[in-house]
């Protein structure tokens, strides 16, 4: 493989990673505030459908993205309202919504199945796009890809360098203590739910208007929401590590295409499930690395200690638990 095609391959990894980045970083923000939004898989599909339908009917890709963000934010607001305000099990509400949003997307999207529609135009960055290697790798994509890449440092900065980010993390660790310090935990959680959900919605639009243009049953984005949820755990709830996981996963997806061509007799669906055993193994590795026995074993081995350390990431302590009283 020559250098040129390698760059193209890497560029397609960046493009493939865009919706996964948007969804997993959105969920990272939500979970840092202590709220689990389990509805990602269905939300992405419903938002993808809404984005395509709106963009098709109005002819405006921008309105499509706005609709997707609105759908994602609305579903997340429902999870937030039920979980944070009413105190209903967040897992229960999220799981129901993931199934219902998927069916709703198929039902409402039926008239838009397999028809031509608008797509996000490529937007090369003037000047930077002409750079060797870096140009095709990073600066000849569309606006969604740039947004997903900028989101990584932006979320890191918000969470770790602003007062509001500190409040978000405080609420996620101990909402009652945050309340005592004058923070309104429920308000913070609702905002994080809606903003995070809007990002998840944009991930849906990134599929139906860019990466896998069009709508159908199946759309092709099925299962991505669950991957994004697992990536948040994989990244230890840290935006940069989550983003790394998302890019790694995109790399696997892109690498799967030539593999599929090498084994034409194996149905495509078999390759589509390949990430999931990998997801189990990484979660298993992370689970085991938390054990005391493993920590003791790694104590005398610097490389093992660094590896275990890299995988360490504790969940926000109040994750999934609504605030008491207040």
């Amino acid at each position: 493989m020559n250098e040129f095609s390698l760059v193209l391959l890497a560029a397609s990894v960046v493009a493939t990673a865009a919706p996964i980045l948007l969804a997993s970083l959105g969920e990272t923000l939500t979970e840092r505030a202590g709220l689990i939004n389990l509805s990602l898989d269905g939300t992405i599909l419903l938002a993808a459908m809404a984005a395509f339908a709106v963009a098709h009917d109005t002819g405006s890709v921008g309105l499509g993205f706005a609709a997707a963000a609105a759908v994602g934010g609305a579903v997340a607001a429902l999870v937030g309202f039920a979980g944070v305000i009413l105190g209903v099990s967040q897992v229960a509400v999220g799981f129901v919504l993931t199934l219902m949003c998927r069916d709703l997307a198929y039902f409402l999207g039926n008239p838009y199945s397999r028809i031509q529609g608008p797509q996000v135009p490529p937007l090369p960055v003037p000047g930077l796009a002409e750079l060797p290697v870096l140009g095709p790798l990073l600066f000849r994509h569309n606006a969604v890809v740039y947004l997903s890449l900028l989101l990584v440092p932006a979320l890191w900065w918000v969470l770790y360098r602003t007062k509001w980010g500190l409040e978000v993390r405080a609420v996620g660790e101990h909402p009652e203590a945050a309340y005592a310090r004058g923070i309104a935990p429920r308000q913070v959680q609702m905002v994080c739910a809606v903003v995070g959900g809007a990002l998840v919605g944009l991930a849906g639009a990134a599929y139906s208007l860019a990466l896998k243009p069009g709508w159908g049953r199946p759309q092709g984005a099925e299962g991505i929401g669950w991957i994004a949820l697992a990536l948040v755990i994989f990244g230890g709830w840290h935006p940069v590590k989550v983003a790394l996981g998302a890019v790694l996963f995109a790399l696997l997806q892109v690498a799967g295409i030539p593999l599929q061509e090498a084994f034409p007799s194996v149905p495509a669906q078999v390759f589509q499930v390949a990430p999931f055993p990998l997801m189990i193994f990484t979660l298993l590795f992370m689970g085991l690395s938390q054990r005391e026995s493993v920590e003791r074993w790694a104590e005398g081995r610097p490389w093992a200690k660094r590896l275990v350390g890299a995988f360490r990431g504790a969940a926000p302590r109040a994750l999934g638990r609504p605030m008491k009283g207040g």
Binding site: L86, V96, L99
Partner: peptide, 24 residues
């Protein structure tokens, strides 16, 4: 000419509504 996923919409909405009504 409707998609058969309407059943899933009703089933999901039922569970969601009961969760919300009970929570309320």
């Amino acid at each position: 000419q409707l998609d058969s996923s309407l059943s899933g919409v009703i089933q999901g909405a039922s569970v969601l509504a009961v969760l919300l009504a009970h929570g309320w």
